[in-house]
């Protein structure tokens, strides 16, 4: 088996506040293989964006990585100096955010921003960098790239702007792209185009993607594997098709059932009672236990760690612990 591109082990992010320490990400582990698309899905408060921010070293104060390690190609990138982190960002990890305007400086031309990023990370001439930038913009589907490269961000439509951001994220040829809700702000028809561009261009360049989103549909279309997050923990991880068709964790089961389907004629949607706990009130044991209909005594006391249930699939749920301490009578 090849070496993972990114390896996250026991990542824990904490926020000290006046009412105690909040744990936004709690002992999260996963790998991303070279060229792979890993979807990270979860509802608001699940800690999915925080996980992304931790990897690129952009956690806002007073938050901090309290435990765990992050390795990029075997080399630790957590806790390194800010200047070393800046080289990692951009050069080795590209970033795409929900709002393109957070990545683009409204005061500079697109050409300046892309060319500068290329030249910061790669030793090539100005002309060469510009040629490359035009090629990239062409690749992400910006018509008439040669002329439009000298436009300002506000001269592009929302969808075109997000294409520019993708070009910017990929211009230094990173090995990994972290995309945080890249299509959430876009219309359905534009969203489909952006997903296509992202998939194609990363595949062409062999870059892996960590796709963070709340939209299971986007993950289904894009990702190879998916990690389902709940209250700052990974509850299930596995190949996308398996997780969608045959979810194992009661939360994933509920989540898949809650999504209305285009083909479906279901009168009612599956609903999970209650809502995601606040960070200040995460239940003991399994964080999902108060909302789970298959809960038993052990869930209320002991936190489940990911258990391998099939090749490539892990589920953090006591139901799959062998030999089972049989509490299913409670279900």
């Amino acid at each position: 088996m090849t070496e993972p591109l990114l390896s996250v082990r026991g990542l824990t992010v904490e926020f000290p506040t006046r009412r105690g320490v909040l744990t936004a990400v709690n002992n999260v582990s996963f790998d991303i293989m070279p060229g792979e698309v890993l979807g990270v899905v979860g509802e608001s408060g699940a800690g999915k964006s925080m996980t992304g921010s931790a990897i690129i070293g952009l956690i806002e104060r007073p938050g901090r990585i309290a435990a765990g390690e992050i390795r990029l190609q075997g080399e630790r990138i957590d806790g390194i100096s800010p200047s070393a982190m800046r080289t990692v960002r951009g050069r080795r990890i590209g970033m795409i955010f929900q709002d393109p305007l957070t990545s683009l400086n409204p005061l500079y031309r697109i050409s300046d921003q892309i060319v500068e990023t290329i030249r910061t990370h790669l030793p090539i001439s100005l002309a060469e960098a510009r040629r490359r930038a035009i090629g990239l913009l062409d690749d992400v589907g910006i018509p008439d790239a040669e002329r439009r490269i000298d436009d300002y961000p506000h001269q592009f439509s929302g969808g075109m702007r997000q294409r520019v951001v993708i070009a910017l994220a990929l211009c230094a040829e990173p090995d990994l792209v972290i995309a945080d809700e890249p299509t959430t702000a876009l219309d359905v028809s534009v969203q489909a185009q952006i997903i296509d561009v992202m998939k194609r261009i990363c595949a062409d360049r062999g870059a892996a993607i960590m796709l963070i989103t709340h939209d299971m549909g986007v993950i289904a279309e894009t990702a190879n594997r998916v990690a389902v997050l709940y209250a700052g923990r990974v509850v299930e991880i596995g190949p996308v098709r398996d997780v969608i068709k045959d979810a194992r964790h009661p939360y994933s089961v509920g989540l898949m059932g809650a999504i209305p389907k285009l083909g479906g004629d279901a009168e009612r949607l599956t609903q999970i009672p209650g809502s995601m706990p606040r960070l200040s009130a995460i239940p003991q044991g399994c964080a999902f236990n108060p909302r789970c209909e298959r809960v038993f005594d052990r869930c209320r006391v002991e936190r489940p760690e990911p258990i391998a249930v099939a090749p490539q699939r892990e589920v953090a749920c006591w139901l799959y612990d062998e030999p089972r301490s049989d509490g299913r009578a409670h279900a």
């Binding site: 075109m160 028809s189 997903i195 296509d196 549909g217 969608i244 285009l262």
Partner: peptide, 18 residues
């Protein structure tokens, strides 16, 4: 254009324009 979880990996027609 709609991403739907029941159609994982289906080929889709390319959507044009904005």
């Amino acid at each position: 254009a709609v991403p739907d979880i029941e159609m994982t990996g289906r080929p889709r027609k390319r959507v044009e324009g904005e």
